[in-house]
Design a protein around this nucleic acid. Structure first.
Lengths: 214, 214
DNA sequence: CTTCGACATGTCAAAGTTGGAATGTCGCTG
DNA sequence: CAGCGACATTCCAACTTTGACATGTCGAAG
């Protein structure tokens, strides 16, 4: 009926809500708990966003109020149109990779710090990753993988977290090491340069190894 | 009562600009090229954002117009205050981890698709990661690691990309496999259940009705 | 029966982000 | 010298995100 056209936007908040409602009907309040419980690290949302989105989705006919409860509670359920939209999003819209990585952005500018400060930053990153990893392990142990569908894909998403935090920690430790090596190299160069002032001539650079383009 | 004092905001765009200017003076146009070249995958920015931020930074005294060029070109340079702010951000503000992972969000809802569709999604993710990895390798080969400082930290950031894409691809392939296993398990259960009623049949299509009427 | 915490929804301002349009200059090439 | 492409800036409208504030109801404990 009402095909909304012209919109090619991502709008994943909308799909996160639809996705949660595809598993079971819920109120805005319930959804907030779900967002804070399972989607915090994947797609954070605030109350105002969730309630606002529910109203928009209702207007668009993608969800409907299935039941009214005690405190003005409105229990929403996904409609056929909503399910179709969710399927469409899952199968036909290419996902955008993770973007805006605050922690990595800093790495580009670590050069203005001393090597020691830079190392400290990287090691803190390693520790943060390690703690996140532990938290995921905790969830893994505590979670009740009862529902078959949720079980499989919930487990898969969790595994993503486990693997990424591991890689992150390893990378950060490796990077901290790199900084040490670079510092050592630089110290060596300085020593050579110093020697060079007394004996100027021998260049330590092996000629012909520098980038001559591609 | 409510005196608004002090901002605890993240504002990494600001720091991205400051960081780039800490390496060398540049115009808004130059910065745009840098954003598109090296920071695309870490902190994307549009023209309007960069030019707007430059004006705000100038007002705040964190950068200054160091020179005027041909086409109304304004070459900005970071000030001492700007450098201090950048250091402050690097050393004292805790980074926020990567958030809003579109691709992973979908994984949570893959249950509404058929196992085959879900697998297809995961394998596409694997390929995307592999392509990204190749792209990073390409950069690694082509990049001119001339400046010592940029060299070290640029290389470290690149390594992050290389490792993360590898992990991502491995995870996605593993996940696709998991789905196969789960399907097999489920098929087994179904067969057992069916044997109770009737003779077992080669179940290949789990009777998923596709939503007609689109 | 009063109070309190959990339940439940709604509204708002400010900041950040997106994508595009409008405007104009310089420098090279035909 | 006309035209074009790269250089260069500014402004804007729409949308998303954040965080706080406002309002009110139900149920159980004291």
């Amino acid at each position: 009926m009402s095909l909304v056209e012209g919109k090619v936007q991502v709008m994943s908040l909308r799909h996160a809500v639809l996705g949660l409602l595809s598993e079971s009907p819920a109120s805005g309040y319930d959804l907030m708990k779900l967002f804070n419980a399972s989607l915090t690290s994947v797609w954070p949302a605030t109350q105002s966003q969730v309630y606002g989105e529910l109203n928009k989705l209702t207007t668009a006919g993608l969800v409907e109020v299935a039941a009214h409860g005690p405190r003005g509670r409105k229990e929403y359920a996904i409609t056929d149109d909503g399910l179709a939209e969710l399927r469409h999003w899952l199968t036909e819209i290419a996902p955008t990779g993770p973007q805006r990585h605050d922690g990595l952005l800093r790495v580009f500018f670590l050069g203005i710090l001393t090597p020691l400060e830079a190392q400290s930053y990287l090691l803190t990153q390693a520790e943060t990753a390690a703690r996140a990893h532990t938290a995921y392990e905790q969830i893994d142990r505590t979670a009740e993988w009862d529902d078959e569908m949720i079980s499989v894909y919930g487990r898969i998403a969790l595994e993503y977290g486990l693997r990424m935090t591991t890689t992150m920690e390893e990378w950060a430790r490796w990077a901290a090491d790199e900084v040490t090596s670079a510092k050592a190299r630089k110290a060596g160069e300085l020593a050579r340069a110093q020697r060079g002032r007394e004996r100027p001539e021998q260049d330590e650079q092996p000629a012909g190894e520098r980038p001559s383009g591609d």
